[in-house]
Design a protein around this nucleic acid. Sequence first.
DNA 1: TTATTATTGTAACATATTGTTACAATAATA
DNA 2: TATTATTGTAACAATATGTTACAATAATAA
Lengths: 242, 242
Amino acid sequence: MKAFKTANESDARGNGFIPNLAIDVVVFGFHDSQLKVLLVKYSKTDYVALPGGFIKVDENLHDAAERVAKERTGLNNIFLDQFFVFGDMSRYNAQPFREVMEANGMPAKADHWLLNRFISVGYFALVDFTKVTPTPDKLFDSCGWYDLNALPALIQDHAEIISKALNALRDRLDDKLIGFNLLPEEFTMGQLQALYETILGKKLLRSAFQRKMLGLNILERLAKKYTGAANKAPYLYRFKAK
Amino acid sequence: MKAFKTANESDARGNGFIPNLAIDVVVFGFHDSQLKVLLVKYSKTDYVALPGGFIKVDENLHDAAERVAKERTGLNNIFLDQFFVFGDMSRYNAQPFREVMEANGMPAKADHWLLNRFISVGYFALVDFTKVTPTPDKLFDSCGWYDLNALPALIQDHAEIISKALNALRDRLDDKLIGFNLLPEEFTMGQLQALYETILGKKLLRSAFQRKMLGLNILERLAKKYTGAANKAPYLYRFKAK
DNA sequence: TTATTATTGTAACATATTGTTACAATAATA
DNA sequence: TATTATTGTAACAATATGTTACAATAATAA
C-alpha cells in the first residue's frame, strides 16, 4: 500500500476512502533484456515500496487501480490484471508509515487511518518501458525503475507481492498472450524471444519459438529492420488484435 | 456477501469487522455426475445468495474464508482458493438486505453498516459432497445444494461470481490437480473422468484420459471395486500427495 | 567485386504427446 | 458355459515440440 496521494488521504480520518483496503500495483517494464519494476522511495527516509493507493467510496476497484498506475507512469490504457489479495495479519506493520509521516512533518497520531491494518489487492501492470514517465508523488516520494534481479529491501510484504505478480505473469503468458504489452508496437522475433526468456527465466530454442509464435496467427509481418549489423535483417512484427 | 453471522454482525456499526469488505465462497460439490453449489436462502424472503461473511479486524483473510466455509459445511481442512475480487459499483444494491432485515424484525436504518457499498473477495471451495452437512445460519437463512445447471435467481452479482469461480476451477484443474478435492478418498477412473468431463463441460476419450492420469504418477491403485454390475470390476484409486 | 561473418527464416528429421481404434480380460447374468 | 457391458491397455495415427541443418541475407574486409 502507498500513502499520501490525493488531497484527502492526508486527512487523519481517511474521509472519502474505503478504510483498511488498499491497492498495490506491480508495474512491469522490459528494457535491455531485463524485467524492471516501478518503485517509489519515500522522501526523508529510505523506505522503498510498490506504488499503491486506496479506493474511493464510490469508485470501481479496477478504476482505482488504473488511477494509481496512471499517476505513476503517466500512461492511459494500461494493461492491468488482478492476481492476489494479501490479507494476512503478519503483513501489518505501521512503523514505516509512522516514520515517513513524522519525517515529513505530519502528525502521526495513533488513530490515524493509515496506521491501521490493511488488506491489499494486488494488480500487475504491463507497460511499454519507453512510453513511461516515472512520476513521483508531489509530496512524499521519488519514483523510478528497478531491476527485478536487484531489488532493494522493500517495506512490509512488498517483495512477496512482486514475487507473486511474476508467478501470475508467467502462468498467464501462454494462455492470454499478454506479453506483447511489454513491447513497443513493432518488434523483432529476437526481441520477443528475449522477452519470453526473461519472464520465464530460461532459454528457449530459437527455431521452435519462432515456429510456435508464427503458428499462433497473431503476428503481422511488417518491413525488415536494418539494424546496421553485418547480418540478415530481421522482420518487424506487430501484434494482431482479434 | 452474506449478512448476520456472528453476534457482532447484527450490530448496526459492524464493530469488530472490517467495513465495506466481504468474502463470498462458492462451495462446489460433485454428486450424481453433476456439479453442485451450496447456496443460502434468506428466511421470510426468497432471496438466494452465496455463503458469505466478513473479516474480523484482527483476522487473516484466509482464515475468514475458512471460517465462512466451515460454518456452512461443517467441514475442517477445506480446500479454498482465491479467484477474484469483485469491486464494481454496479454490484452495489442494498435493497435485498434491507428487505431481509425488515422481514426479520431488524431495524434497517439507512446508515446500517450492511447497507453500505461492499467489495467482495471471491473464494471457491472444493469439498467431498458426501461429507458436507449444509448448515443454515441460526437466525436468517436456510442452506442447501443447487445444481450448477439449474441455479435460481441470485442476488446482486452472485451468478457472475459463480461463473468466474467455475472458470478459475477449469483453468487450474490441470496444472494444480485440485479436482481430487471433489471426490471421496477412493474413486474409480470412471468417476474421475466423469468429474473432469463435468467441470470442463465436454466429453473426454476414455483411453487417453486414463493413460494421462496414470502417467502423472499421482494415483495409487488399490483393490478392485465389485459394483454388482455384469462387467469387469474397476480398480479403486487414491490421490497420492507429494 | 568478391570473400567473410553473424544472424535470420525455415526446412527436415527425431522425439514426445495426444487422438483413435482395437481387443483381451473380466463380473455378473442367462 | 455363452452372453453382455465395462475396464485396462496395446497399437497405430495425427499433432506438437525438440533439435539439427542450411540457404538467405547485410554489413564489413580483402
